[in-house]
Design a protein around this nucleic acid. Structure first.
Lengths: 209, 209
DNA sequence: CGCAGGTTTGCACGCCGTGCAAACCTGCGG
DNA sequence: CCGCAGGTTTGCACGGCGTGCAAACCTGCG
């Protein structure tokens, strides 16, 4: 959620602390509003007012209502992509991808992600923004692969692999969300991990049952 | 493009012929406008005026500018999904999926699709709508699988498979588009088919080089 | 103090998407 | 031929969206 003021001060040169503060305020307020009022049942002005900020300022931070909400999913996916970047470059790709998938079960970002994830069912525009979030993650992974030292990979291979890994991970998440409703408990976490292990098996052995 | 009037009359009960006619007019006009003016450089009113129809009528057919354009991609994907439905239900899933992928090289829908496909680079909203189109196709395939007689499949397996197949197909299409610019010639078609064969290989043997 | 960044705000404009009711076809039975 | 019943097209209006612009407003610093 919010970062401790000390660390923020040390990293952020002065006024930028306020920027991230209001940014977080907007994101949190949007999430709260969607909880209270429901997916499409509030306007940008509502968010701005509830966040104690002008309508125009909202648009200084986000180009749309959906963008402010999808942040939670983007952080979730960024964290997963970070796990890939943390792997040694010599490691086989499929092995590193395994790390990306299991990182999807990270309990820290999972709850906020799940809450926004569920909005895709009722709000078409929200769904589109989420799909874009996944695609951004894919692009990030593909370029990361292409920059690996000794990357003699076929670019087609890289994008097909990344696409398959992510869509399989998304399938696992969907299944998990359907069964658990997005509640993050110890039990649901082990279920999610199991689902992810399953899709990893499919990817490894090629979907040939 | 346009259907011969005779067959239309025989199938469509009277006034509905006009409906599909104006619908096609809107789609074609939108495509022409994007060719002439560029992605985001025209409004719904422009489309309506150029199609000889009122602004309000446009919105009777499509909920947004993008929806009118993405039709070309949806038809392309629907055709691919149809190939799956035409397969015998006893056939192994992976085999039927192969048919879906190779259907992506259908030259009839390919040109119009490619033209719209390229808009995703410069128009973010267009990109989102296209992603949604692919997701719709995936959902269609998954429910089709679940309705196969003797469908004892794990739903996770089905959605992971479909997601991987489609994202791999999309990867092949992207690669093809990059190299050919979307021009549909005999040469580019064989290239596309080769790329599709490649990703099929990845899917079959599990991305383990 | 007053200045030099950068941020927030108000204002205005054009466009979007939709509900509503009236006008407008078009085929069909009287 | 008439008028009616169904469906389509249109105009109107309204609220919401997204952005350019310029003025007001901080905040640190010399």
């Amino acid at each position: 959620m919010s970062v401790s003021p000390g660390t923020v001060r040390s990293v952020q040169p002065g006024w930028e602390a306020n920027k991230t503060a209001t940014r977080n305020a907007i994101v949190d307020t949007a999430l709260n509003l969607v909880r209270v009022k429901g997916p499409g049942r509030f306007t940008v002005d509502d968010i701005a007012a509830a966040a104690g900020v002008s309508r125009r300022t909202f648009f200084n931070y986000f180009p749309s209502r959906e963008a402010a909400l999808v942040v939670n999913i983007e952080e979730f996916l960024d964290h997963a992509a970070d796990q890939f970047l943390a792997r040694p470059a010599e490691e086989p790709l499929v092995e590193s991808m395994y790390e990306v998938l299991t990182a999807l079960a990270d309990p820290i970002h999972l709850a906020a992600m799940a809450e926004v994830y569920g909005l895709a069912d009722t709000d078409a525009q929200m769904n589109r923004f989420q799909l874009q979030g996944w695609e951004n993650c894919a692009e990030r992974l593909v370029t990361a692969i292409s920059q690996r030292p000794g990357a003699d990979h076929d670019p087609l291979y890289a994008s097909a692999l990344v696409g398959s890994v992510l869509s399989s991970g998304k399938a696992a998440l969907s299944q998990w969300y359907r069964r658990t409703g997005g509640d993050v408990t110890e039990e649901s976490l082990t279920l999610l991990r199991q689902l992810l292990v399953d899709v990893v098996g499919y990817l490894r052995h090629g979907f040939t049952l």
